[in-house]
Nucleic acid binder design. Structure first.
Lengths: 205, 205, 205, 205
DNA sequence: CATGAATGAGTTTTCATTCAT
DNA sequence: TATGAATGAAAACTCATTCAT
């Protein structure tokens, strides 16, 4: 009664169904891994028949690709926040560490990231998507580091690149630490993360 | 005449066979991943029948577990080297970075590590092994950092722990960087890895 | 006002819808084969929903059965033409060969015929329909061959039957030839088809 | 004890298994059609697990391809017989008609032929095999018709080709006749087949 | 009348594992 | 000890058919 609401396919329903599948799949992948989770389990989790999923996704691969794309957008927004904040860059980034570390040691989301990373080593399509996402993140970071507010804006391009790589490596590596040593927590990590990151965003020597 | 060398299982031969399988499997897993490599391929690579492998390993899973154990020993020996070297600890560790970075951005071995890491998120046995290995590595490193030669030997336990976690995170994170950005190389990374590591093994402030 | 033209099923519309489906299905079957064409494609081609087709046909099988029935009527009309033409029977039939050969080496339609034929070998309903159609065709042909204008009207029944069977065999066999040797064309075939058919409609010896 | 009989794969067994599968598959295809017969049924008929079949054939398609190849060799031997027989060609071919007609109205084998023919209309690989087989048959026949003993050895190439095509069409068409009119038998058909074939292997006019 | 979302049994194929020899 | 033939359960995916709207 509210709108036209009747004739033809309802795109809102379709979108809802896609989300349903995406969430269910992400959940299954976290628990069982991409290869370990079958369409049967995903469909059960999503509350719809396996066959029906194929009305929304062309293949199991298409599902993980969609998950990656969804995550990409989220990642992007994190970096946008840094850019939008006023004031001293070092302060901004170091302040961001708190939530950054927290986000990176979330094993639940991390398990999925790891899974995608593993898949990328063997699946070119997945690799391409992940790299695209990563490229955007690096560019965002570079624009911060060479910006007016940056204490290292004068550094050579290679040095900037290296700093970015190592910052990212450090943060991403935290996930593995949490998996291998579940007893660590954010506060403990920050003790050393902060000085290390500071080194990475201020001039060497 | 003395040994007869035939009757009943020769334990040396059995061990050799196990090694054969382990090497073949590691090779296959690197190329195709744990799920991508089949027992058929492994047996072909190992030069023995698929059925026969089951005389030495209870399952495919048991194989990867053995590989992990084998890798543990290797990792252990790397740390032993640091300990055995004379002189200034900072110098030793920074000098070790060169080969350390190189080892950590070997995507072939790394892809397997990643897969094992992923597997750990859901396979308790694998997790336990990996953690045991990691624990040993951390202890080795701690013994270095609190040793006589260490510039931070006076630091609090939590700080030491944090430093170790972050060093490991950084190094392990390099693998992901290499996967997401294959164009990076050791030299580029070392530009920022060195200062960051130096920060992590010298007193803060 | 008189018909109200809406309430309850309009039989004319229903018939039109059936035709729509039949044409679409025949089209799809020619292009993809009976098994290769899905209800989804048929419904798309027919411009109606898949579900709706089931208001007119009980099953996919029912559709092909209807197609067969429709084709039967068409075939029938071909024979009617011969009967209606005046003059010498031999001339009429030989003149008809030109278009007859052409029709029989149309692989698109033919592929469907072949599939129906195959289906007949295991689907009794299809077999019955095809045989009914064939029986009518044979009877039409027999009435021509024993008619006043026929040069073999005096032949024994078995001989007439044999001639009809062989004529039909020859014409139907052309389709297989075209499939196995796509390079042949109507003109080439007519070189030998004409004398062979002439033999079959004139007294032996 | 008889031979070495032990070490390594026994190729005789493998061959036997292949035959087993081929026969079972041919049987199933006759009864249910290529698409209608599932691997499950084939494996049941062959008395081995579905999975095991894949040790001998790469796919279901590979099975039908092997069947075609097997049939090709058989067909070839039929033509060889004609060539090897001494005496008048017309007599030889007309004498061969008896068994030829019989072979062509064997609906059991024929159902399979039809199935393969149908498949060829949609499956290029199958089509290629069938055409290769057919080409050999045509060439064999041509060599007979242009040979020393042939009454039409002087005919133009196109005419020879046409005669061959029509002879083959006629014989292959008999199968369809038998399917559409199961009451016909060899004797009845021969009444008209013989004169028609005679026309096709003697000079026109 | 008409839709298309939803189902579930079915498809071919793969593969870790077992076992007679 | 060693083989590889054999299995069977699972995988991803398809599709004719049903049904609430």
């Amino acid at each position: 009664m509210n709108t036209k609401t009747k004739r033809k396919t309802d795109p809102a329903l379709a979108q809802a169904r896609r989300e349903q599948v995406l969430c269910a799949a992400a959940d299954c992948f976290k628990r069982k891994g991409y290869h370990g989770a079958g369409m049967a389990e995903i469909s059960r989790t999503a509350g719809m028949s396996a066959g029906h999923i194929y009305n929304y996704f062309a293949s199991k691969e298409a599902i993980i690709e969609s998950i990656i794309e969804r995550d990409m957008e989220e990642l992007f927004s994190v970096f946008q926040e840094f850019e939008d904040q006023p004031g001293n860059l070092v302060t901004i980034l170091l302040n961001g560490l708190d939530s950054g570390v927290e986000r990176h040691i979330d094993v639940d989301q991390g398990a999925l990231d790891l899974e995608m990373q593993s898949e990328a080593a063997r699946n070119e399509k997945v690799a391409r998507l992940l790299r695209k996402s990563d490229l955007q993140a690096r560019e965002k970071m570079r624009s911060l580091l060479v910006g007016e507010r940056s204490p290292i804006k004068a550094a050579k391009a290679a040095e900037i690149d290296s700093r970015i790589e190592v910052m990212f490596a450090l943060m991403n590596g935290l996930l593995m630490r949490k998996i291998l040593n579940p007893s660590i927590d954010k506060e403990l990590l920050l003790i050393a993360v902060r000085p290390a990151m500071k080194t990475l965003i201020t001039p060497f020597d």
